[in-house]
């Protein structure tokens, strides 16, 4: 029993990170119909920039803030330099562009940060907390708490503020949003900035547990994508549920089946969703206009 609880706790911790990555996918997808494969690189950058800012002497909170702001700026730059110039291009081209951007970011990170594995200290100590025979790291509570705060904050933003509603309106119908005077290019920029910032924050929170290296982004991107698809692409609630399910299944695979193949869990989920329920758990059946 305590074993199950242990796997569940670690599954929820990584699941919270996957949920944040999935949320990033969702926001950009809603604003621009682009599936941004570079989403995982934002997580990597969040951890990486924090490591180096901290090593350069910045206190941890300041280093983390630097990382989030810098990554958000990079997200905006990516939108301006790579996505906007290709507006109206076929899906194939946009997929290749975001993959290209993610490989470019990874290559740059390898040059700047090196190939080593990096970490920085946990926020509030490393002593595990005991719960019912299982243990949880204080940092895991930071991760889970951080995810909860972001999801609640975004929910308030989308339902209670004018700007948030403008973003929602744009994702529903871009042209109609433009006609009622919503500045849709700004909404795109905002979505990329928020999505990159959220990814970076996830990276900051999880790095003391999972450590980071220049090439961790791809795994986060894939699992976040699996989560987003499982929940239903474009649905924030789906992102949360999908992330937690992927995280827990992965932890169970590692615990009960094989730790070597734990990464396979996310892909099996992708296949299962594509085979049986392509619209995801919370998604609607899509129809297209000719």
């Amino acid at each position: 029993m305590s074993e199950l609880l242990q796997f569940l706790l670690s599954g929820v911790t990584v699941g919270a990170v996957y949920a944040l990555v999935a949320l990033g996918f969702t926001m950009i997808y809603n604003a621009s119909d682009v599936v941004n494969f570079a989403q995982g690189e934002f997580v990597m950058l969040g951890g990486m920039i924090t490591v180096f800012a901290h090593a350069a002497g910045a206190p941890l909170p300041l280093a983390a803030l630097t990382a989030v702001v810098a990554t958000a700026a990079l997200g905006v730059a990516m939108n301006k330099l790579a996505i906007e110039p290709a507006r109206g291009a076929p899906v194939v081209s946009l997929v290749i562009i975001t993959i290209g951007a993610s490989i470019f970011i990874r290559g740059a990170a390898q040059l700047i940060f090196g190939k080593q594995i990096h970490r920085f200290p946990a926020f509030s100590g490393e002593d595990p907390i005991r719960i019912l025979g299982a243990t949880i790291l204080p940092q895991s509570l930071w991760v889970i708490g951080g995810a909860v705060v972001i999801f609640v904050g975004l929910w308030l933003f989308f339902t209670r503020t004018l700007l948030g509603r403008a973003v929602l309106a744009t994702s529903n119908n871009r042209l109609a949003a433009q006609l009622v005077g919503i500045n849709t290019p700004f909404v795109m920029t905002l979505s990329f900035a928020m999505s990159a910032g959220i990814g970076a924050l996830a990276g900051v929170l999880v790095t003391p547990i999972t450590l980071t290296a220049y090439d961790v982004g791809l795994a986060f991107a894939l699992k976040g994508f699996a989560a987003a698809m499982l929940g239903g692409m474009g649905n924030p609630k789906g992102a949360l549920a999908g992330g937690l399910i992927v995280g827990v299944l992965e932890a169970m695979t590692a615990g009960y089946l094989s730790s070597q193949y734990k990464d396979a869990a996310a892909f099996i989920i992708i296949f299962a969703v594509l085979f049986f329920r392509p619209q995801g758990l919370f998604g609607r059946q899509s129809t297209d206009r000719v």
Binding site: A89, S93, I97, I99, I103, F104, R106, Q110, L111
Partner: peptide, 20 residues
């Protein structure tokens, strides 16, 4: 060799934007 990923990524993005 060091720049392989950087170059690959840049080629993908630039070709898709300028030489579709």
């Amino acid at each position: 060799a060091e720049y392989e990923q950087l170059v690959l990524g840049a080629v993908m993005v630039l070709v898709m934007i300028f030489l579709r």
